[in-house]
Nucleic acid binder design. Structure first.
Lengths: 221, 221
DNA sequence: AAAATGGATACTGAATACAGTATACAAAAA
DNA sequence: TTTTTGTATACTGTATTCAGTATCCATTTT
């Protein structure tokens, strides 16, 4: 009988608090003006302030929250300039992933990517949140497939920064027919085995949504 | 008389601890087997454990330290696979910076880059640490010049991960004559105004040092 | 009415205490 | 000798307390 080693890393409350806050932001449960106050959250969650603080400091470090002059932490206000820079950063990460995958040209990985795209674009209830998650999942699979932990980590950080805004998911209508074509063509460009073609295709795909994103943010404010 | 607004952000002890530990790692004052124990560091620095803990958790989050099964935190052991991935991640970030700079083609920025290269390669005492810092500073200036906070942040994170190994600074001899030519040619490729040329040049420059780096790491263990 | 002042309050950052967990090591058993 | 067991110790993660700081708001002054 082969017994499986029991994982002994102790879960930290701070990690769970971090995830809960991130999830709440994404669900729209935390508004722009809401202040996340350590003592209050501690009372709500019935734990001490310490892990709350650790989680909040980490969310601040990750660029998702800012400490507020009135106390507590608020969702980071993102500027147009920052959005532009995030799009450039995305192009760097996801463009590199495309290059790596094009060079590798692994048929199984490409098939897996196509399967993910088909599955994720089968959104049952078209809310902006669902669209954001589907889009993130699709793009994330490209990174996962190129098996580079750092690119994945940077990808997650970029997308987490936009979680309060559904950044990168700005569309005029909740209509996936346009998106469907676009993602598959990315896989096609990777299948071309030409890293430059693949990267340019991904970069163009990313850049296309930039202006629409700025409009969406303007409407929000 | 115009009075300057006094910065009111309260400095945190944790931030200073973070910097001190990073500096100590870079200086080689912390060895691979050294365990950074919260209580001990608190006694050494004559402060409470709390900011120590905050700094250590952040260094862990940044991938620079791992928590040790024997207690405390140790310098993260980096594998060949991780080095490979870091090189790819660098190529993504620095390659994108080159593209941005090539498109922009700002004469002042290029001149500033050249000045930095000349200054940094004027190392008075050729130690591996000095070489690492000079190399980092040169490469960092490319990122700074493209004015993208996220690329800069990711750049710093990548380089900080290698601080305990002088990663990206593996050379056969402490001789900068080779390095001098290489960095200037990067600026030249950016001056060509062709983003693909610029990026390919930077990526090749980065990739060239990869095998040498693996050898240096093997010798160290 | 607008600006300045003063004090209460909210909240933070750090210090300290407590309880739990994992490792190391000595002693006992096979 | 090797393996197992028990216990002490080191260290962590969390809870609680303390002291300092900044903001808010009411009151006073201009």
């Amino acid at each position: 009988m082969q017994l499986k080693k029991i994982k002994t890393d102790r879960p930290r409350l701070a990690d769970e608090v971090y995830q809960q806050i991130l999830t709440a932001i994404r669900a729209g449960d935390i508004k722009d003006e809401d202040r996340l106050v350590q003592e209050r959250l501690a009372a709500d969650l019935q734990i001490s302030r310490t892990p709350i603080r650790e989680a909040l400091l980490r969310l601040e470090q990750d660029g998702i929250l800012d400490s507020s002059p009135r106390g507590g932490f608020i969702i980071h206000r993102i500027s147009d300039q920052e959005v532009k820079e995030l799009y450039q950063a995305r192009a760097a990460i996801e463009g590199q992933a495309a290059r790596i995958l094009a060079v590798e040209n692994n048929k199984d990985k490409l098939a897996s990517l196509r399967a993910t795209i088909e599955r994720e674009e089968n959104i049952s209830s078209p809310t902006i949140e669902a669209y954001f998650e589907a889009n993130r999942s699709i793009h994330r699979t490209f990174i996962v497939q190129c098996e580079n932990r750092y690119l994945l980590e940077m990808f997650d950080n970029i997308w987490n920064r936009g979680v309060g805004y559904y950044l990168f998911a700005a569309i005029e209508k909740l209509d996936l027919s346009k998106s469907l074509g676009d993602h598959m063509s990315l896989v096609d460009s990777i299948a071309s085995a030409d890293p430059t073609v693949a990267m340019d295709s991904v970069v163009a795909h990313i850049t296309d949504g930039f202006d629409l994103q700025l409009e969406a943010l303007a409407k929000r404010q």
